[in-house]
Amino acid sequence: MYPTDFDYHRPESVSDAVKLLKENPEAKVLAGGHSLLPVMKLRLAMPTALIDITRLSELSGVREDGDAVVIGANTTYSELMASDVIKQKLPFLVDAADQVGDVQVRNVGTIGGACAHCDPAADFPAIVLALDAEIKTVGSSGEQTHKASDFFVDMFTPRLEPDEVITEIRLPNVADIASATYQKFAHPASGYAIVGVAGVRTSGGDVRLTVTGSVPITTRLTAAEGEISGKDLNEANIKAAADKAGEGLDFVGDIHASDQYRAHLTRVFTRRALEKLAG
């Protein structure tokens, strides 16, 4: 519970942050810190320096940009829930963010932090993926934009170089979203997802379904999507699609929930997500 020695930097700009990261290859970016600080206290992570970006206002806030909604990487869950843009354009995100951690976590934890950390049981990677988001990063080699589907590479492994930070998460074509939802079965102790399923239905009837918690890294439920896309969300179709949820995926298991149970819950929560999408 006592971290090893580290330096602390609070840059004034994103470019300064990038410069510091370049100079300190063993440094970590500090945003909300809710995942980083506990592992440092357990000495499971021993960064030589922390680059604190929490006060960089250029990374904060939610705005509209044409058809897109753009969420600054430093936006906390609480800020997201309070955002008028979100309330109007993507009201399901208010409910989804409300399912993250507890009040303290929501007040400090950031959307960018959740994406950069890539925890296999985190909620927002699955939500961002279901929204087909683009994740913008900046590093010493300049700006990059990644599709969410390319960004979440593996457990705790984002497509992010050591000298890069996430600047914003761009949710395209929000006007095209007919309905969206996040359904979660939370671990009673940690609050993390044992299974979380995010679902988005476009006005054209396409359905995107993603899962977190039950698999090593958030992923699309392609078999279920294929079964339901373009079809009526009636009971029989929903059941047929939910039965295919997780097909072809490897599930994780631990003392709290076996892989079989997680596979089952993935089907249950896919069904619930689809029922919710049907309205």
């Binding site: 671990h187 009673p188 102790a189 940690s190 993390y192 003392i255 709290h256």
Partner: peptide, 21 residues
Amino acid sequence: YEYAVYDESGQLLTGSMMDYC
């Protein structure tokens, strides 16, 4: 909710509030 679990080598698997509810 609450249960302490050891693995075969005697490690407490429910050794934090993340695991022990």
